[in-house]
């Protein structure tokens, strides 16, 4: 039954898609408020996941309770990065900021084995919220409860954050800071706080993404979120960083392309090794066609 297997592939992609969408929002938020691409996003998320896994495996606490601790730690790490580093390096140019985030990756990767006992484990078990064999069967398609949890958490978070962005005072401040930091400051918005909180929110979104992600993959190293992060960046380019919703659609498109190629791979097994390459290649072609992203607009540079 091919349609059932297509659907099964679609369902299988959903957990990583949820992680990807959350990571994409985090990257976009930082891009818009701090004008840099945060390469350390993946490793900050991984720290959140490490906290949760450490508390679960070493101290024996239930995962759903300590996931919040991981999220809070990631929030604090995010705020700390902004307050300690970016606030002091305001005159660093765009490239310098990018490089600082690359340096942060090295710092966190170096720190993880010293801080977390889990990093010394031979192998870390997969930690889903509900055991992976449990789920519901619809027709011929099996849906894990864990997948449903990922989907619900992601949708709730996204809807909440978009409502906040559109309706709340905080959202207005973020949008103002994103469009022009200096003018926003003149209008009485405390841009420092907005930027710091944005870093915190990005960190905690990343942590949520990572905690959902380790329900399917073992937490092997601090680089665990690299693929998700790459997808998030590409989603940002594909959708265009000009809007908040563009990158989210970009992420959905990238993961749906994965599903599409996956379905083709059922009939042409030779392609399966080349799956990521094909997906990236299509994304590249789309970007070549629309250099400012599918939903982007040309940003006019004022001299």
């Amino acid at each position: 039954m091919p349609i059932a297997s297509y659907l099964q592939i679609l369902i299988g992609v959903i957990p990583s898609m949820c992680a990807g969408i959350l990571a994409t929002f985090a990257v976009t938020l930082i891009f818009k408020t701090s004008y840099t691409t945060n390469f350390a996003q993946g490793v900050i998320s991984a720290i959140g996941a490490y906290v949760a896994v450490e508390l679960t495996l070493v101290y024996g606490l239930p995962l759903w309770a300590v996931a919040f601790v991981g999220v809070i730690v990631a929030f604090i790490v995010g705020v700390a990065i902004d307050v300690l580093i970016f606030r002091n390096g305001r005159y660093v140019n765009a490239l310098g900021k990018q490089i600082i985030t690359m340096g942060l990756i090295s710092i966190f990767i170096g720190l993880i084995p010293f801080v977390f006992k889990v990093a010394q484990f031979e192998s870390v078990p997969v930690l889903p919220f509900i055991h992976l064999t449990q789920g519901i069967t619809v027709g011929d398609v099996f849906i894990q409860y864990n997948t449903i949890i990922s989907l619900v958490v992601t949708v709730v978070l996204l809807v909440a954050v978009f409502i906040l962005l559109q309706k709340s005072k905080w959202g207005l401040s973020v949008r103002a800071t994103a469009s022009n930091e200096i003018v926003a400051g003149m209008m009485g918005i405390n841009t420092k706080v907005i930027t710091a909180v944005s870093w915190g929110i990005a960190g905690s979104f990343g942590a949520v993404a990572a905690t959902l992600y380790i329900g399917n993959v073992t937490l092997s190293s601090g680089y665990i979120m690299t693929t998700t992060q790459i997808n998030a960046f590409l989603a940002g380019i594909l959708g265009g960083f000009a809007t908040f919703y563009g990158p989210i659609f970009g992420a959905v498109i990238i993961y749906m392309l994965n599903v599409l190629i996956g379905c083709i791979c059922i009939h042409v097994p030779v392609l399966s090794n080349w799956k990521p390459a094909i997906v990236y290649f299509i994304v590249m072609l789309l970007v070549l066609w629309k250099p400012h992203g599918l939903f982007g607009k040309k940003m006019v540079k004022k001299v």
Binding site: V92, I99, I100, M102, G103, I105, I109
Partner: peptide, 13 residues
């Protein structure tokens, strides 16, 4: 790696 990361951040800043 940690040492390298710290150096990079300090040098850039």
């Amino acid at each position: 790696t940690l040492f390298c990361g710290i150096l990079v951040v300090v040098v850039i800043m």
